[in-house]
Simulated assay, not measured.
Amino acid sequence: MTASLRCSDLCVAYSDRPVLSSVSLSLGVGFHGLWGANGTGKSTLLRVLSGTAKPDHGDVWIAGKHLARDPVAAREGLAYVPDEAAVYPFMTGRDLMALCAWARRSPAIVPSLIEGFGLGPHLDKRYDALSLGTRRKMLIASAFIGEAAVLLMDEPANGLDAASRAFFSALLTERSRSACVLLSTHDGTFLEAQGATIIRQESLGLS
């Protein structure tokens, strides 16, 4: 298996309390679910894998590019949906999608994504004026712009209505045929329904 996402010996501690301890992963194309209870380090791991947080020790590669030594090339192959979005509040949904498209060298507006998540009426609203569910849909839609080799998603289904959740499930099924999708959740039922390869939190050397 060719690894789309790889990390080696990741260690992170907060106030001398270990959160990640010697975590190593090698994941190829497919749908992988990081499963575990809230507060056990899933979000920390995804932040490190996405480059939004630095590990105390260890390395990450995205599509063969070292995230620390070659960050621009690595991030071109990466899409990340955080649990809480660090988006400039004055940005509109259209601005967010244009920024993600620019980073991945792709068209900014994908009509099927806008229609599927019902985002048309919200594209030109400020991000801080949107509901939690609509913000989540914007982030998810932005992640599917372009052909990122690796998609990292932290509890992405939170706040989605039933129709959007069904559309999102279909997107995951389609994209995981050609990309490496790593989705964290405490909802094992969702992962099983999607046919994900489940990675248990406690198996990764998390403290």
Rank of each mutant, 00 (worst) to 15 (best):
M1V: 11
A3Q: 12
S4F: 11
C7W: 09
D16C: 07
D16V: 08
R17Y: 03
L20A: 10
L20V: 03
S22L: 10
V23Q: 07
S24Y: 03
S24V: 04
L27V: 01
H32R: 10
H32G: 13
L34M: 02
A37R: 15
S43E: 01
K54S: 15
V60W: 00
G77R: 13
V81N: 10
A85I: 11
T92V: 04
T92F: 03
A98I: 15
A103D: 00
R104L: 08
R104P: 04
S106M: 10
I109H: 03
V110N: 13
G120K: 15
G120N: 14
L123W: 07
D124V: 05
A141E: 04
S142W: 06
A143E: 08
F144P: 07
F144G: 01
I145E: 10
G146I: 01
A148C: 11
A149P: 01
A149D: 12
M153Y: 03
P156D: 11
A162G: 07
S164L: 05
S176N: 05
S176Y: 06
A179R: 03
V181M: 09
L183M: 15
D187E: 03
G188T: 03
A193F: 00
Q194L: 14
A196V: 02
T197G: 12
I198V: 12
Q201L: 14
